[in-house]
Design a protein around this nucleic acid. Structure first.
Lengths: 228, 228
DNA sequence: TCAAAAGTGTTCGCTATACACCCATGG
DNA sequence: CCATGGGTGTATAGCGAACACTTTTGA
């Protein structure tokens, strides 16, 4: 960053933030896409995103996008990569700071642009605008990686959930099958869940659990690993 | 990215790539810093970096920086975060795509700017320009995280090395101590190393090993974990 | 001659895995 | 009444962690 030049002496690319919004419907992992209304790629599905404003951080920009698309505030987002290949946007030099968001699909109300937004199963995504196919692939990979170390999956479930739902989520993300009983034990042993008291329970209803945030912070620091 | 505007209608930040260059001297993990020759932060140590050119990807920019600073080509680099907080650069709105590089410190010859470049032990780094302290912290954390999953440590060692050196490296990065004998066994069991034939060996010289790239790709896919 | 370094073994305990059993509900 | 789903229990194998022994070299 040297020489005696001013910032304006250097050419500047345009900067956008795009957001891969993941949700879980109880069976499959889904992603929220929007249909582009303008050129280029008009009519093509794309990741929600927009230009970075000069007075906001990229994270604030991603959260703003998220609010506009899903109506959610304060959801979990994570920056995972910045895409910079020249030519990735036909309009000119554009770099994209990409985030993924984990949202409770049940709480998504749909925001201003909701008319053109739609959930797609991750294994049934249409061709996307720009290099968004690649961005989505990288996001999925990073999510899979992260879930081995941090129990981020909880961000995708309702506040209260059954172990069976939790297992289905992990199986959907990691594309594996777990033994039901071992999965139960593993979760119990982690002490990451708090059982919800549902009063005089009519039996054979599955227990409801809540996520234990305190324990989460502990495990995040000590390291933590889920089986494959 | 909508509306009927052109790219030039949106304000654009300046974009730099900064590179956290890690090296290992056999005992401590080190990082290469440069002393700034111009304002702002003239005379302060900083991460090597520079403005992104319009015809190169961020990765190419980082590799270019690396070549200029260390004389190395084709070294291992990894993008780990993009820093965007408004105000992080007093000159105006600047976002930085940050990479870390793992280099063999022995092979670093020092490039054009080498006069002002110096290696610092990671636990003895001076105050840095801009938010480079934070960038360095994040880089160290990401390196520690990554090394649990991928045997990237080999990028920091000479082509041939002893198990003892390898262990010292891991201990330096993770800030732990391993039992020498267990570490040997672990490495043997992973089959990640190829023993170098040093002819009729004068005994009690430690064996030399090379990194086995084939096995690496295998493990990278299957998942892989080192003890803490 | 003795301390230090390098290679190889042994034991123990935890945990991941596979698989079994009991109970309640509803068709 | 029996299939289904949900909660709990048990046995085994593999691996990580702790620790021991032998040999060779050089001070």
């Amino acid at each position: 960053m040297e020489k005696k030049k001013k910032l304006s002496d250097y050419p500047r690319p345009s900067v956008t933030t795009d957001c891969v919004i993941f949700g879980f419907d109880g069976t499959k992992l889904k992603v929220l896409l929007v249909e582009r209304g303008v050129e280029p790629f008009k009519g093509t599905w794309a990741l929600p995103g927009g230009f970075l404003r000069m007075d906001e951080s990229a994270e604030q920009g991603a959260l703003r996008e998220l609010q506009e698309e899903t109506g959610l505030e304060g959801a979990y987002i994570k920056q995972f990569h910045t895409f910079t290949t020249p030519g990735r946007d036909p309009r000119g030099r554009v770099i994209t700071i990409a985030y993924y968001a984990l949202v409770r699909i049940q709480e998504v109300v749909g925001g201003d642009d909701a008319a053109s937004a739609e959930w797609f199963a991750l294994d049934d995504v249409p061709a996307l605008a720009f290099d968004h196919d690649q961005i989505l692939r990288v996001a999925s990979r990073e999510l899979r990686r992260q879930i081995h170390f941090e129990p981020v999956g909880f961000e995708l479930l309702p506040k209260q959930f059954t172990i069976k739902e939790l297992q289905a989520l992990y199986e959907a993300i990691l594309d594996v099958k777990f033994d039901r009983r071992n999965f139960y034990k593993k979760m119990q042993h982690l002490e990451l869940l708090t059982q919800v008291d549902t009063g005089p329970t009519t039996r054979n209803q599955p227990f409801l659990f809540e996520f234990n945030a305190t324990k989460y912070d502990e495990l995040k620091h000590k390291g933590f690993r889920l089986e494959f």
